[in-house]
Amino acid sequence: MVVVQRRELTFWERMYLPEIVRGLVITFKKMFEPRVTRQYPEQAMPTTAVTRGQPRLTVKDDGNIACVSCGLCEAACPAYAITIDGKETDRFIEREPERFDIDMLRCILCGFCEEACPKEAIFMSNELELANTTREGLVYDMEQLKRSTSTLQPRIDYVRKINDRW
């Protein structure tokens, strides 16, 4: 059993009203302190390379998607958000995705896909906003997920740096 030792209140404190006045003074003073609210849509939170936003697919400089649809992100995804179907290409890299869907309602932004990817093809971008009026609209297909390498470059550099540590 725990016996809670309560502090003996002084007479002044037991009079109650002075303490109330003290509290009122504190709140009154607070009214003149600078405000901390951020006006969100106008003042977005700045993101950094460490920000783990929604996954996006990289498009290489030659215009081809970096993904080879190996399915490792699909296998690594703990939320079963990713669905990939592959197809054959004429390029040296023989395989590319025919369908690459990420169900953003399922995605938990854990970043396992990024970690699993052997081809630097999927990265957690700094995009955080997600809204739609239908569920189907939030299943992003390949065209919605494609981003150029340059937009993802900070994250790519960061991931390379982290991976070098191991």
Partner: peptide, 10 residues
């Protein structure tokens, strides 16, 4: 408004 001021909100 006043509650916002007291809580450092807008």
């Amino acid at each position: 408004k006043i509650s916002a001021r007291i809580q450092l909100r807008i």
